[in-house]
Every structure is written in structure tokens, then in C-alpha cells.
Design a protein around this nucleic acid. Structure first.
Lengths: 158, 158
DNA sequence: AGCATTATGTTGAGTCCTCAACATTGTCTG
DNA sequence: CAGACAATGTTGAGGACTCAACATAATGCT
């Protein structure tokens, strides 16, 4: 019953696993070495920097940085220790917490960004042709759409 | 001086980040839930199962499962607790250790595989066209080649 | 209003990973 | 052969993540 992978699929899958792991490990190591933060934290700082007033509700930040609430909560606690982010209480929802990027946080991000972007370029964009970049974009958008939809399309009653 | 990402590249990169994270988180969660092991351990068992006598030197296993020696050492210790893998000393190299897949380990892998493959299919291969799978394969092979080569091609003395 | 349900965010325990340091053994060179 | 060097694998500390449980506050229903 199992739809096993055939030879081509097997190879494609292993290339996917290998390349993805290599790219992320490499970027993560560079970021940790050069900026003292893991990639997940960089992402959080980026999302905050893009938000109005560089502040977001925890839940909104969790959505945008593709993080669980728990992970984000731990991460923001850590970021607070560096004084890169500060928590504020939310005026209109007493449950809410607002994470705000500090000036120091913004500077840390600004310092980290050029090196990181250079890494992304050299490890991902430079090796690929413009056409491949377009293909990869379409492919990833497709995967995102497929996975973001929790809908079960395999069994529609009727 | 920084070669920042333009709008298209930015979008492509975020789709890549998002899709990759979603795919791996999903597969990892499924594997943990259904088979009680993280994906990295699944990989290790797979590589061992493919090896002659289902055994490999630690260093060879580390290479094939794209793992650091340290990570592998910790992981094999953990796998030994489940009696899925056993360590043996290496006859021709006293530094060496051989990791051998036990019968129980093979059975655990056999039990985990169908569900995992189904996950890979449904989250990755099913949403994509055959053409896209080919494209993705080529792209990942390119990235692998680029990153596996530590060669610095930016500055050749001359 | 009263009560159950849902949403928000945090916490702690446990797991996995990284990094640097280390002990041991093999290899190479003078 | 001796001594430097390289390779193998392990260890421990510390960081990041997951999961389940929780406290608190908002919402919805009757």
C-alpha cells in the first residue's frame, strides 16, 4: 500500500535534504559567529524592525516569524537579556504583551544584516541562474500553500 | 557595498525560508509523534540499514547522515538506550567505533518508514508537478555542489 | 449577569544540538 | 625510531526548541 519513492524521487529527496541542511547550518553558523545570534533570533529582529514603531503583539510576531508561542516567549526573554527587545503590556488587551525592538536591537540587526545577506547571496542566489530562482520561488510558494492549508482534501464525504 | 536583495529576491528568499521550515517542522513532528524519533535519528537508522551488515564506522556514518561527529556521538548514545543501535570496537583501528543497527532498530525503522514516506509525498511531491520535481532536484544539486566545495573562488592570486 | 469556551502568553522539564576541550591512536617525516 | 601532526570519537556545558500544563483575560451563549 505504501507509495514508496522511486529512484529519481529518492535522489531528489536526498538532494533536498542535503542542500537544505547545508544551507541552513552554514547560515546559522555564520550568523552565530559574526553576530552572536541564531537565525531564528535574526528573523524575530527583522520582523520587529519592519513593523510600525518596531513593535508587535507577541501573537502577531509569532505568526510572522513562523514561531510557536512558546518558542517566541523563550526567545524574547533571551533577547531582553541583551536589551535588544523589551516587553510592554498591551493597553487594550490585558492578556497581551507587546515586544518592542530597542535601539540597541536595531543596531545589532543593522550590524548583522550585511554579512548575513552576503551569505544568502553566496550560498543560494549566486550559484543559481535567474530562471532557477524563479522556479524555486514558485515551488516554495506551492509548498507553502499546500502546507498552510490544513484542509484534508483526501476524503471529502459525499 | 552590500548587495542587498531586491524585491523579487526578497520574496523568493522568504518563500524558501517559510516552506522549508514548514516542511521540516511538519515531518519532524509527524515522525516524533508516530515513531518516537526525530528526523535526524531516522536518517541515521536509514544509513545504517543501507550499509553492508547494517554497520558503519562512526565517521562514515557521520558523513552519510550529514552530522557532526559530536552530534552523532550523542545520538548513537541515545539510540543505544532504545537498543536500536549498538557500538562495537573496530578491529583494525583502535580509535574506531562501529555502530551496528540491531534487529529492534531495523524493526523500528520499518515501522516508521511508511508513515514518513507518506508525509514526504503529501507535503512535498504531491503538490509539485513532475517538472517541478526535476527542477528542484537540479537546484538542490547545484546548491550542494556549491556548498560542498569549500574553495574560495572569489580571490585567486595571480 | 453567569458560566463555559476560547485566546494569549508563560513556564518547566526534557531533548537535541553546538562548541571547545580532551584522550587516544594512527601517520608522516627527519 | 622519535616526535610532531592529524584523525577519531567522546564529553560537558550551555543554548534553543518542544510539549504539556498553567494562569489570566476576553468572548459567546442562554
Amino acid at each position: 500500500m505504501t507509495r514508496w519513492l522511486n529512484e529519481d524521487e529518492q535522489q531528489a529527496w536526498r538532494a533536498y535534504l542535503g542542500a537544505t541542511r547545508l544551507v541552513f547550518d552554514q547560515l546559522d553558523r555564520e550568523l552565530q559567529r559574526d553576530a552572536g545570534m541564531p537565525h531564528a533570533y535574526y528573523e524575530i529582529l527583522v520582523r520587529l524592525s519592519e513593523a510600525p514603531d518596531r513593535a508587535l503583539r507577541m501573537s502577531a510576531l509569532a505568526d510572522r516569524s513562523q514561531s510557536s508561542r512558546s518558542r517566541l516567549s523563550h526567545a524574547v526573554s533571551r533577547l531582553e537579556e541583551n536589551d535588544w527587545v523589551r516587553r510592554e503590556s498591551c493597553p487594550d488587551d490585558k492578556r497581551g504583551q507587546i515586544a518592542r525592538l530597542t535601539d540597541a536591537g536595531f543596531e545589532a540587526l543593522a550590524a548583522a544584516a550585511p554579512g548575513h545577506v552576503e551569505g544568502v547571496r553566496s550560498h543560494v542566489f549566486d550559484p543559481l541562474t535567474p530562471e532557477q530562482v524563479r522556479q524555486l520561488h514558485t515551488i516554495n510558494q506551492t509548498l507553502l500553500d499546500a502546507l498552510a492549508q490544513p484542509a484534508d482534501t483526501t476524503a471529502v464525504p459525499g
